[in-house]
Write a protein that binds this DNA or RNA. Structure first.
Length: 210
DNA sequence: CGCCTTTGACCGGCGC
DNA sequence: GCGCCGGTCAAAGGCG
């Protein structure tokens, strides 16, 4: 239906641009110092809006390598994502992994295949639930979750060949914090990044002729 | 007209 | 087996 299965078997391509943190989009995302390990075990890293993020190796990050341990960015593979931050808020019940990337017809099938899509979450302190990460997203659902006064919103990348999803939920414990969970890897360039870079590249090509 | 959000219904997994 | 829960679908409506 939406081509979700089309790139399940293909090896994931590295993101053409950071799925977040693009300096060419607004609002900018900025990082706080690393959280203490005790809190990071329950919650994704918290990003503030007043500090510039360090350089991040997103390829390594999304492939599950590097930036682990005490680093504030802790990617979660799908197998280990069952203890995601959103669950910490809703009482730890989560079985979505079995259904990720499975459309309605597939769910009617005999056996649901477990997928292994990269997944990571982080927190931002923002008044806006939706962060401009440079990609285009279409909201496909919203659910009230247990033990949370705020609903969880479900978004899918609008690119026709891309099946990246994200979940957005505001913490009831701290209403200023928004938890965003990304799932999957974009297999296309960031639209806004390309929009910004294209005229610059053309100008560079023009100037290089002299 | 195309794209988006909203929202109720539906589905499968899990715990009891 | 049943109910709860989270995730997804898809129709309807809004907006530029």
């Amino acid at each position: 239906m939406d081509g979700q299965e089309s790139n399940q078997s293909a090896p994931p391509l590295p993101p053409a641009a950071p799925p977040l943190l693009s300096p060419l989009t607004t609002p900018f995302l900025f990082a706080t110092p690393p959280l203490p390990p005790s809190s990071s075990s329950l919650h994704p890293p918290l990003l503030e809006t007043h500090q510039i993020l360090p350089d991040i190796d997103w390829v390594s990050l999304l492939s599950g390598q590097g930036l682990m341990g005490e680093n504030i960015y802790k990617p979660m593979n799908i197998e280990s994502a069952s203890s995601s931050s959103l669950m910490a808020e809703n009482g730890g019940h989560d079985h979505q992994d079995d259904k990720l990337g499975i459309n309605k017809d597939k769910r009617k099938g005999s056996r649901i295949k477990k997928t292994t899509r990269p997944r990571f979450a982080f927190q931002t302190r923002s008044a806006d639930d939706i962060l401009d990460d440079g990609y285009r997203w279409r909201k496909y659902g919203q659910k009230a979750v247990k033990n949370s006064i705020f609903p969880r919103s479900y978004y899918r990348c609008t690119h026709h060949t891309c099946n990246v999803k994200k979940q957005v939920q505001r913490l009831s414990k701290d209403t200023s914090i928004v938890v965003t969970t990304y799932e999957g890897i974009h297999n296309h360039p960031c639209e806004k990044l390309m929009e910004t870079l294209t005229p610059l590249l053309k100008q560079m090509q023009f100037l290089s002729r002299f």
